[in-house]
Design a protein around this nucleic acid. Sequence first.
DNA 1: AACCAGGACGTGA
DNA 2: TCACGTCATGGT
Length: 251
Amino acid sequence: MKLNPFESLYIKLLALYGPRGWWPLTDYAHQPDPLLTTAKGYHPLDYSLPNNDDQRYEICIGAILTQNTTFASVVTALQAIRRVGPITPEVLMGLSDVALKQAIRPVGYFNQKADYLRSFTLWFINRNPKIPTRNALLDLRGLGPETADSMLLYAWKQPQMVVDAYTQRLLFSLKLLPEKSGYSNVKAAIEQAFSQSKTADKVMAFQEFHALIVEHGKLFYSRRPYGLNDPLIAGEDNVQNADELHFNAKG
DNA sequence: AACCAGGACGTGA
DNA sequence: TCACGTCATGGT
């Protein structure tokens, strides 16, 4: 079978870094199989998560908190909340304004994000249907396209590709897309590249693809000039083991 | 000591 | 539609 350029890129990244185990959950250490558990809550090769509404909620809260910040800061904030109680809508709404802002202070923008968290939480409690539409999420304050797609992909397992700054820099650098394509064009191009896959395979691929791009982006696309020393540009020979994957985009 | 981080929003052209 | 300023802490 012939892979299109986006599928091919996905396979190469997967070979380079391996499955990333996104989205990390702070209580994943409590999962039944300790072999699949990593210290920071990542769960490589376990695509069953989330399996309850509280885990779903934590992913959404994390998606808001991580806007334009490092996830390490998000973990600090989540653990501050967990000192009060489990990360649930009830616990968060039970926090005073001062306490909430204090807890999420390390992620920055804590005034805005405290508001976003509260309005999101009220919506989450009362939401109907249980699986939201993309537009329903976009109507909420503080939820732009990337955060909405992150929630849909990782919390609700919907086949929505997440596009972030790294994604655009990488794809422009590899000349897979013209510069200034914009969020919706990049998203559509990637989703179309996987359009023949089954839904569950799309979800798995998109979950890994985005996480892999972030991993690769941190290494080669965080500082100008973008893409310097990127092995994906230097030559195909730098990418090892692309044929020896134990699974691929088709599952 | 600038620069950057797993963005979104409000404003003015 | 788009370019630009703002929001803010923490690590390198």
